[in-house]
Lab assay of single mutants.
Amino acid sequence: MDETGKELVLALYDYQEKSPREVTMKKGDILTLLNSTNKDWWKVEVKITVNGKTYERQGAVPAAYVKKL
Rank of each mutant, 00 (worst) to 15 (best):
V44Q: 00
G5I: 12
M1Y: 12
I30H: 03
V66Y: 04
S19T: 10
A60S: 14
G52P: 01
A64L: 09
E7P: 10
T37S: 14
Y13R: 15
N35Y: 05
K6V: 13
N51W: 05
K47L: 12
V46E: 01
Y55F: 12
I48R: 07
A60F: 15
P20D: 12
K6E: 09
Y13H: 10
T24M: 04
I30K: 04
L69H: 03
K26S: 07
K18F: 05
L33V: 05
L69M: 09
D29R: 03
A64E: 09
A11I: 04
Y55I: 12
E56G: 12
D40N: 11
T37W: 08
W42E: 00
P20H: 09
K18T: 11
K6F: 12
V66L: 15
A60M: 15
V50T: 08
P62E: 03
T37Q: 11
V44K: 00
K26H: 09
E17Y: 04
E45R: 12
S36Y: 07
L10M: 14
R21P: 04
G28H: 04
A60N: 15
A64F: 09
D14V: 06
D14P: 04
A63T: 05
K39P: 14
P20N: 10
T49N: 10
G5R: 14
K39Y: 07
D14G: 05
N35M: 07
E3C: 15
Q58I: 13
D14T: 05
K26F: 09
N51C: 11
P62T: 04
T54A: 07
D14I: 05
D14A: 06
E56L: 15
E7H: 11
T32A: 08
E22S: 05
T24F: 04
K27G: 03
T49A: 07
E56S: 15
G52V: 03
R21Q: 14
A64V: 09
Y15I: 00
A63S: 12
V61E: 00
I48M: 09
Q16F: 14
N35H: 07
K68T: 06
Y13K: 12
W41Y: 07
L34F: 04
N35E: 15
N35A: 09
T32R: 14
N51G: 11
G59H: 01
E45D: 02
D40A: 10
P62A: 03
K67L: 11
N35S: 12
S19R: 06
M25S: 00
V66N: 00
A63N: 02
E7M: 12
G59F: 09
M25Q: 01
V23G: 00
K67T: 12
L33H: 00
V9L: 09
S19P: 04
T49K: 10
T4N: 12
K6C: 14
T4K: 13
Y65D: 02
W41S: 01
D2T: 13
T54K: 07
R57E: 01
K43A: 10
K68H: 07
T49Q: 10
T49L: 11
K6N: 10
N35W: 05
Q16H: 12
Q58N: 07
A11G: 03
R57G: 03
K68M: 09
I48W: 13
Q58T: 11
V23F: 11
N38I: 04
Y65I: 06
K39G: 09
R21D: 15
D29C: 08
G59P: 01
K67P: 02
K26Y: 10
V50I: 14
E17T: 07
D29V: 05
Y13T: 07
K53V: 14
V46K: 13
W41L: 03
K18D: 05
T24Y: 03
A60K: 13
K39S: 12
M25T: 01
N51E: 10
R57W: 06
Q16I: 14
